[in-house]
């Protein structure tokens, strides 16, 4: 059964129909990517799934439960969270406090241990743990945003443009980390403009065009598709 199922989702900004009825699903253990050009509706989809933008029509089913009308914080309590586009770390809090915010809703005693785990994965964060997050570089902020999301212990992790604005070396690192999170059992829904790299790590992918799903298939299939090659892979 699908962990996340989106059915005929429609979202409006005022009178403008940003999503014109899209459907897709994410199965447990998968990495699924939504690719598409600027303005195709990728971020709108992500924000709607997590309850930050209301859906006008359609259904969002998570873990067998209809979450279409739930507020964001309740959806997060069900076990999904998001690394938003542009990272959105808490600029005025320290690196350590940002990670604590990630664990805000947890009541178990493993929080300290898990923060250690994050530091082991991201050594830069440990070096800067008492630094105010607003003073970190873009790459470090991306690592912090990902670490913070993992502190929520999500079943489903959504990442919106995690490679945006990063150097090629860091982009590779980000994709390696996503793969590693997935291997450890986290299901991943990814939105990316870097179609090549994201399709390479994806089990399945969807192509979003003007608020509609234009194509779907396995990562491999889409990489071979002529349309995708021409429009998104620069070939």
């Amino acid at each position: 059964m699908a962990l996340l199922e989106v059915k005929d989702l429609e979202v409006y900004y005022g009178v403008i129909r940003a999503l014109k009825g899209i459907s897709f699903e994410v199965n447990e253990g998968e990495i699924v990517t939504l690719i598409g050009a600027n303005g195709a509706g990728k971020t709108t989809t992500m924000q709607s799934v997590v309850g930050l933008i209301p859906a006008r029509a359609g259904h969002i089913i998570y873990d067998g439960k209809d979450i279409t009308k739930l507020p964001c914080h309740k959806i997060v309590h069900l076990g999904m969270t998001q690394v938003p586009e542009g990272r959105h770390v808490f600029q005025e809090l320290t690196v350590y406090e940002n990670l604590l915010m990630g664990a805000y809703m947890r009541k178990d005693g493993d929080i300290k241990k898990d923060i250690k785990g994050i530091y082991e994965r991201f050594h830069r964060l440990e070096e800067r743990k008492n630094q105010i997050a607003g003073t970190l570089s873009g790459g470090e902020q991306q690592m912090l945003a990902m670490g913070r999301a993992m502190m929520c212990k999500p079943k489903l992790l959504m990442l919106d443009e995690p490679s945006m604005g990063l150097s090629p070396l860091l982009v590779d690192e980000v994709f390696d980390i996503i793969k590693a999170f997935n291997k450890e059992g986290t299901t991943v829904l990814l939105v990316e403009q870097n179609a090549g790299k994201s399709l390479a790590i994806s089990d399945r992918a969807y192509v979003l065009e003007n608020g509609r799903i234009a194509l779907s298939g396995t990562g491999e299939e889409l990489m071979q598709s002529e349309e995708v090659k021409k429009a998104y892979l620069g070939g």
């Binding site: 997590v50 507020p71 914080h73 997060v76 808490f90 005025e92 809090l93 805000y104 929520c152």
Partner: peptide, 24 residues
């Protein structure tokens, strides 16, 4: 305190705060 940090977080970024599972 946790609530204090949630207050700083909310004043800075409501969406990101909700993504931490916090009821703004």
């Amino acid at each position: 305190t946790k609530m204090g940090r949630a207050m700083i977080a909310t004043s800075e970024d409501k969406d990101a705060t909700q993504l931490m599972g916090i009821n703004v």
